[in-house]
Amino acid sequence: MIPAARLSAAMEILDEIVEGAPAERVLTRWGRENRFAGSKDRAAIRDHVYDALRRRRSALWRSGAAAETGRALILGLLLETDPAALELLTGAGHAPAPPDADERAAFRCLDGAPPPVAGDYPDFLHDELARSLGPALPEVAAALKDRAPVDLRVNRLKAGDDAALAALAADGIAAAPVDGVPGALRVTGNPRRLTGGRAYRDGLVELQDAASQAVALLARPGPGEAVLDLCAGGGGKTLALAAAMGGQGRLVAFDANPRRMRDLPVRAGRAGARIRVAADAEVEALAPYDLVMVDAPCSGSGAWRRDPAQKWNLRPADLDRLAAVQAQVLARARAVVRPGGRIAYATCSLLAEENEDRVAAFLARNPGCAKGTERRWLPGAPGDGFYFCEIIVP
């Protein structure tokens, strides 16, 4: 496919997404129905679609269109990121039609756009984001408009950094260490080769955002401890905890939705990690734990560049629901941690409502518990936006 035809396909896919269809489902179906498109074509189209979704409000504003369409989003995206690419819109062959006089007259810059439009986030979140981030809000919003890097965690159960880098290089993948996060690597070349390469296949490296890795390290799981990952999800932090424990101790993984953990046994086997995937009733039966990791369900606002649909689907009622879930999970963690143990509370959220406020509410309900290490990472350095707070239990 020529570059212009890729833009046409992205417009077509975005039209369906604007109507409410999930992005991944539409992209998958498009790929199946258009077998002529090669892997590079599909990757480029996906990039166009997700770039437009990250900048959904600012792109529509830049286009000046009265209605949100795939064409309007791509026009606005190109105006913002690559104006020269508008020349590809010739109408010849499979290329989109060029902007007509009315469309060009509507084009505008972001000067005067409301902050949520310029920053590409929902209106209802503005006050909470401003409270949480203060003067950093515009810079953080800008960081969330761009694609996230591909980060890897060196699996210290199987390899050191040098061995992992050498194995990646043999697979044709370039990577470099991430400053400030031991064992974190950032892929700088050929990321799409990763899952087919030996380094990944043999468990020398795992895909994991660098800030997420930093959270697992700050939890300080000890080699001989009993550790519970209470919101394990796909198991990224569970595997990081296992590596930090050096394969010693007892590590239990649980998630309220067991389907999220369906790949964890295979991933653990590849990584050489011993992890017990627990059913609901086993969480208490296997207590007490020295450390309970609570990577709580949240808005995902710190990782919106990876999943932009998450921010556009978020509603005010969701924050109330999530706050209740976060409180429930913390209460369960408190019930199963041993005296003198630790709860490691974390979210990939930028919102104080899900972070500092939740910890403060927990401490108010649990006299004697105290804050230990507390840290917040903003998107960009070293990775996604994350919050971490260690809670020490008396």
Rank of each mutant, 00 (worst) to 15 (best):
I2Y: 05
S8G: 06
A9L: 06
A10C: 13
E12R: 15
D15F: 04
E19D: 14
P22F: 08
L27Q: 10
T28I: 05
F36Q: 14
F36H: 14
G38P: 06
G38I: 06
I45T: 07
I45Y: 03
A52G: 05
R56Y: 04
R57W: 10
W61F: 08
S63V: 07
A65T: 03
A66L: 11
E68T: 02
R71H: 06
G76S: 02
L79Y: 05
D82R: 14
P83I: 09
A85F: 10
L86S: 11
L88H: 07
G91W: 13
A97H: 03
A97M: 05
P99L: 07
D100P: 13
A101D: 15
R104W: 00
F107H: 08
A118H: 11
A118L: 12
G119V: 13
Y121H: 14
F124Q: 01
H126E: 15
E128I: 00
L129F: 13
A130V: 14
L137N: 06
A141Y: 01
V150E: 07
L157Q: 07
L157F: 02
D162N: 02
A163L: 10
A163F: 01
A164Y: 06
L165Y: 08
A169I: 01
D171N: 09
A175R: 06
P177Q: 01
P177V: 07
R198E: 11
A199H: 04
L204V: 09
V205Q: 04
V205H: 10
Q213N: 09
A214G: 11
A216T: 08
L218H: 05
A219Q: 04
R220K: 13
E225Q: 14
A226E: 03
A226F: 04
L228N: 07
L228P: 06
A232T: 02
A232W: 02
G236M: 09
A240G: 12
G249A: 05
G249W: 10
R250N: 02
A253R: 09
N257M: 12
R259A: 14
D263M: 09
R267S: 00
A268L: 11
A273T: 11
E282Q: 11
V283C: 01
E284H: 03
P288A: 01
Y289N: 05
L291R: 13
P297G: 13
G300S: 03
W304E: 02
R306F: 02
Q310F: 05
K311E: 00
P316F: 12
D320F: 07
R321A: 15
L322K: 04
V325Q: 15
Q326R: 09
Q326S: 02
V336T: 04
P339Y: 07
G340K: 05
G341E: 06
I343Y: 00
T347M: 15
C348A: 05
A352H: 11
E353K: 01
R365L: 15
A370N: 00
A370F: 04
W377L: 08
P379I: 13
P379H: 10
G385Y: 09
E390R: 15
I391V: 12
